[in-house]
């Protein structure tokens, strides 16, 4: 890929989470994995999920991959993939809002404001333990590897298309 092609691709991986809240750090762990192995034109960002700066982070990007921990009444370690370019995240993955908008609300806000990238894919890793000070639980640690491999495959030019998992 030439430099202009790489620049035009403007691919961004955003890992969202909090290192100090157990499985909430899953998105950050995937971001580190991708940073070590991704094609050079892929930019990797760690993010706390604050909505306005999240919008600004992806404003200049064409393809964006969000990776975040979710709590969706499933098994810890489940990996979900949604192409949210054309439709919202599933309701069960949308947290109740407080002062701060959640990632799902931020995606919908961006859609309403015409600020969605050309492609937006969201990976969710089902967490089990979000305790303060905890590290990743064993099933989520395994899921980080699984999600990272799938995302890496998706980021690699010429790779077969990834379908929902």
């Amino acid at each position: 890929m030439t430099a202009p092609e790489a620049a035009a691709r403007r691919v961004l991986v955003i890992g969202i989470g909090n290192t100090y809240r157990g499985d909430d750090a899953a998105g950050l762990a995937v971001a580190e994995w991708i940073r070590a192995a991704a094609p050079p034109d892929v930019t990797v960002v760690r993010h706390e999920g604050e909505p306005i700066s999240l919008l600004e982070t992806w404003d200049q990007a064409r393809e964006v991959y969000l990776v975040d921990a979710v709590s969706a009444d499933g098994e810890p370690g489940n990996v979900y993939r949604f192409d949210v370019t054309a439709e919202p995240l599933a309701a069960r993955l949308r947290p109740r809002g407080t002062h701060a908008l959640g990632v799902a609300d931020t995606i919908e806000l961006a859609r309403a404001l015409g600020r969605l990238p050309r492609r937006l894919v969201s990976y969710g890793i089902e967490g089990g333990c979000f305790a303060t000070g905890a590290s990743l639980s064993p099933p989520v640690r395994e899921a980080v590897a699984v999600a990272s491999e799938r995302l890496l495959a998706e980021l690699t030019p010429g790779a077969p298309p990834v379908t929902a998992c």
């Binding site: 908008l101 609300d105 919908e108 806000l109 309403a112 404001l113 015409g114």
Partner: peptide
């Protein structure tokens, strides 16, 4: 605010 943004993105 999300519903408002859908009608009035300029305000948001």
């Amino acid at each position: 605010g999300l519903h408002m943004a859908q009608d009035r993105p300029d305000l948001l």
